[in-house]
Design a binder for these strands. Structure first.
Lengths: 122, 122
DNA sequence: ACGAGAGATCGACGGTGGTCAATGTCGTCT
DNA sequence: AGACGACATTGACCACCGTCGATCTCTCGT
């Protein structure tokens, strides 16, 4: 019922919580789980992959509906989830809405899951 | 010995599917999503963290129930999910069941999500 | 101004998942 | 042998999620 506004993207939290090495607090686990739930879906994984593989690193909804085999509202819904999770960026140009990966967002999640120390490249 | 490393189905798939760089097939996305769903839960994330942080790298159910604040059946359920996903290993010694991280399992997932080329992988 | 098309939102429906209480199973101790 | 304790399993309940059709909003072209 309430408008779920997330002032700070969840990806920001994910960047500083090593899964192994120390016990996660309930809050840390909740934040990380929120991002993981966003990508723990076949359709959304394929969306991320399709967007990344598309020419220019961005794609509009019309480019994504057909290869996924899902309806346009469903695709829009999944894209919204990914945007809310801080993994995709939405840019509207004219009639079309272009989606692109947020640089470093996926790597941040990967760094949390990695048991080895993440390289200082972040 | 007890090194009967059964071919963890999901983890094996996860090690060879770069999310970015090319479009995922529906099957690849499904397999990857299955592993991600296993860890996309606050309780299970904390379980992984608790097990990893525990002395000896392993912990029994009795060690995990209290810090999580969940009932024993619920903890057992979550542990089973993690074992089925190939992320945890279960070893029963006497009355107690000890759980430990499967080496490299989390790193494999991290490697798939990472946009950069994974070291020593693929 | 009007129509057409892209995309977001809404409402509804079925499936899935997390949780617990109760119970079952197995090993241990007396 | 019997009792007890650790853990797994079952069944049920409730919330959430993925999906679609229908509809709305907005922009562009005519």
């Amino acid at each position: 019922m309430s408008v779920d506004v997330l002032p700070s993207p969840t990806a920001a939290v994910a960047c500083c919580a090593p899964l192994v090495g120390r016990a996660l607090t309930a809050e840390e686990a909740g934040d990380l789980a929120r991002v993981l739930k966003a990508i723990a879906d076949p359709a959304r994984l394929r969306l991320l992959s399709l967007v990344a593989a598309h020419a220019g690193g961005e794609a509009c909804v019309c480019d994504l509906t057909e290869p996924l085999g899902l309806s346009q509202p469903t695709v829009s819904h999944h894209l919204k989830v990914l945007v809310d999770a801080g993994l995709l960026r939405r840019e509207k140009r004219g009639v079309w809405a272009y989606y692109a990966l947020v640089p470093g967002a996926l790597d941040a999640v990967a760094a949390v899951l990695s048991t080895a120390a993440a390289p200082a490249g972040a």
